[in-house]
């Protein structure tokens, strides 16, 4: 009785397996034509980085000394370098030129930052430069 039982189950198993294979085969051959690689752009490509002034489309101006003072050290009044501000070369040169103009016109101090601007939002962290310090 037990032998008959095992034979029966085995038979069922083999038949179901055959059915499964039969149903799978035609579908796999059909999809191989649709599975051809699709031409598309690299979906993992990162977005082009921009500096904050280019992003917001701001041209630094010597009259806007509040903006310029954000690129100045609050302790010494010196202009932060490109490795700290994270600006592109063009904008950094513009910012530096405009700060010098503003200082020369007595809009901005040379050796300190205007105390009314000390609590302005920080555009960057001098302690974490994008390129390491020389010091």
């Amino acid at each position: 009785m037990s032998l008959l039982n095992t034979f029966f189950t085995k038979n069922i198993y083999s038949t179901t397996r055959r059915i499964l294979v039969l149903t799978m085969r035609p579908s796999s051959t059909e999809s191989s034509e649709n599975n051809a690689p699709i031409e598309m752009e690299n979906p993992y490509k990162k977005e082009r980085r921009q500096c904050i002034l280019c992003q917001l489309n701001i041209t630094p101006d010597y009259k806007n000394y509040r903006l310029l003072s954000q690129f100045q050290s609050p302790y010494t009044g010196r202009i932060y370098g490109r490795h700290i501000t994270g600006l592109c070369k063009n904008k950094q040169a513009l910012v530096e030129a405009e700060i010098k103009k503003a200082q020369n016109c007595a809009y901005m101090p040379y050796y300190y930052k205007d105390k009314t601007f000390l609590k302005d939002p920080k555009l960057f962290d001098p302690q974490n430069p994008i390129r390491s310090h020389r010091f």
Partner: peptide, 21 residues
């Protein structure tokens, strides 16, 4: 104090930060 500056017209340039990094 008096200072005279020439007004520079805006020049369009694309950001080169990506190449610099």
């Amino acid at each position: 104090r008096q200072r005279v500056f020439k007004v520079q017209n805006d020049c369009d340039h694309s950001c080169t930060l990506e190449e610099e990094m």
